[in-house]
Amino acid sequence: MSESREKVLTRVRRALGRGSLDERTCSQLAARISSPPTLTRIDFTEDAVERFVIKARGEAATVARIADDQEIPDAVAQYLKSHNLAAKFVAAPALRSIDWPQHLDIDFGTTRGEHESGVTPCLAAVAETGSVVLLSGVQTPTSLNLLPDNHIVIVRHSQVLRNFEDVWRQLRERDAALPRAVNFVTGPSRTGDIEQTIQLGAHGPRRVHIILVDDTEA
């Protein structure tokens, strides 16, 4: 243990006018971590999916709604075509299982920015703010969320959660440890750094397109 570590911790304790914490306080604080307090959420009455769509569009994302998984390839192809983009993209390996048609030229894996468009799944979406939640991992490399100019995200109705707190619950159930990166993305990259004029496409994607699949049982 380094000298600075002891120095800093000693200073903290001296500033707080006490020595090391007693065992009882430590276990109380540990309990506060293992079962976090219930704090104020942003409350809303509308349907989570509808709110997610409105909020995402409000932050300059586009949303296409489809009825089932089989329509995903068409929805992707249509989006690319409508923006005059090549039918070529990088997709997260997690999406290999989709039945992609021959005419789409797809690289499964990561990117160093050589791809104009990228398609990824998500862990969840947040209705509170219109954000999508993207995890890093072997099947879902983070670079796809950041480097292509066009980011297409597939979201299912069942993935739309109301608040951030619901995402934490899901992450904890999934694994005791967090993945390396949990990205919350709310619309395309933007900057206001020149005369506070909002300009889209600062460093990350210029466009974020959400393909929203209705997977609820009819």
Binding site: E59, E128, G130, S131, V182, G187, P188, R190
Partner: peptide, 8 residues
């Protein structure tokens, strides 16, 4: 309501 990117 949220910044465009919030990452953990």
């Amino acid at each position: 309501e949220a910044s465009t990117y919030t990452t953990i």
